[in-house]
Amino acid sequence: MSRQFEDAQLGDMELFVLAADAASFTAAAEHTGMTPSAVSRSVARLEARLGVRLFMRTTRQIRLSDAGRLYLAQCRLTLSQLGEVERQLSRQQAQPAGVVRLSLATGYGRHRVLPLLPRFRQRHPEICLEIQLSNRNVDFAKDRFDLAVRARHQADSSLVARKIEDSELVVVASPGYLARAGEPQSIDDLRGHECIQFVLPRTGRCVDWSFIVDGQDVEVSTRGSITCSEELDGGVHLARHGGGLYQTSRFLVERELLSGELVEVLAPFGGRSRPFSIVYPSARHLHKRARLLAEFLLDNLGPNQGGHMRARV
């Protein structure tokens, strides 16, 4: 869209209204700290642009022309509307309002983030949340998301990623499966077990399993006849019903481990974790309502990381 107004024109309109109200260039000048000649030139610019006389001038006074009275009414309306919009925006900054669009990795979203969001809404009742649960990478420009929370995100210099927390990984199986297939005692034992596979949507590849062996981080390719994609919870349900071994985040299976539906195995080789991060475009100014949500999640999920995030959002 081409510009209709130059930067100085709204200022010229304001000076015109002041001069019309005071019926004097001198009085308008005193009100603004300008010289009478500067106010006169400002009004002259408007008249030249419009091609009409806004004031009838004599050596002693000015008075509005018919065109000036019509233009004055419209200027008052325009400036009043602009002032009201600015006041509304200022109030929103004081008490943030509006919509925050948030994309969440499915399992992490359900188990870690969604339970917290009602409390965020109680603190900020004027902020509305639009939430998507998906493990696919977000196209911020196309999908108009403000924030995303992901375990793995594509390396992209246009995005900022701030870690929320490290989620511990565990390998689990049902008591029934272990009674049938035996409990693995070493990483090599995985070759003889049914290992439920999870496929990354971005790559289409099965996720390697992560362990610590002799103090070293190790990635292991496992094999299994059952493959899941999209939903991490799918592997948990399969494991609960005897489908095999499954490596996943501890928060996804805490309840089942407590109830005995699942049993942790290979604990001596555990200790690896997966980072979950808040992601947003680096080129975009993060508005206050989105920043408040990011800070809230960090304070409630990653207390040791909160101050660092707030300093850089």
Rank of each mutant, 00 (worst) to 15 (best):
R202G: 12
T59P: 05
A290S: 14
P184D: 01
L178V: 01
Q61H: 10
K142F: 14
T78W: 10
D12G: 02
L10W: 04
R223E: 02
L102C: 07
L18Y: 04
F269G: 01
A73G: 09
M34F: 00
D21A: 12
Y177E: 02
R250I: 08
H124W: 14
G234N: 15
D233Y: 01
A105H: 07
E183N: 05
L147K: 02
R57D: 13
L79D: 05
A179E: 06
P96L: 01
V100G: 04
D66E: 15
A8T: 06
I226Y: 10
R312G: 00
I62A: 10
G33R: 00
G68P: 06
D143C: 12
R144C: 13
S134F: 00
S24H: 07
A155V: 12
A141M: 11
L298P: 05
D166V: 06
R69I: 05
M56S: 15
E231Q: 13
V213I: 07
R310M: 11
G242D: 00
G68S: 09
R53Y: 09
Y177H: 00
D299M: 10
G260H: 05
P175D: 11
T222L: 04
M13H: 00
L301D: 12
E30N: 07
G109K: 09
G242M: 00
V43M: 06
T26L: 00
G176S: 11
N135D: 15
S90A: 15
A22S: 15
V199S: 04
L116C: 04
V85R: 09
L77N: 06
Q185D: 09
V149G: 10
G270P: 04
S157Y: 07
I127S: 05
I226E: 13
G109S: 07
D299L: 13
L301C: 08
F145I: 01
G224E: 08
F145S: 06
E84V: 09
V313D: 01
L64F: 03
G182I: 03
I212H: 03
R162K: 10
R240Y: 01
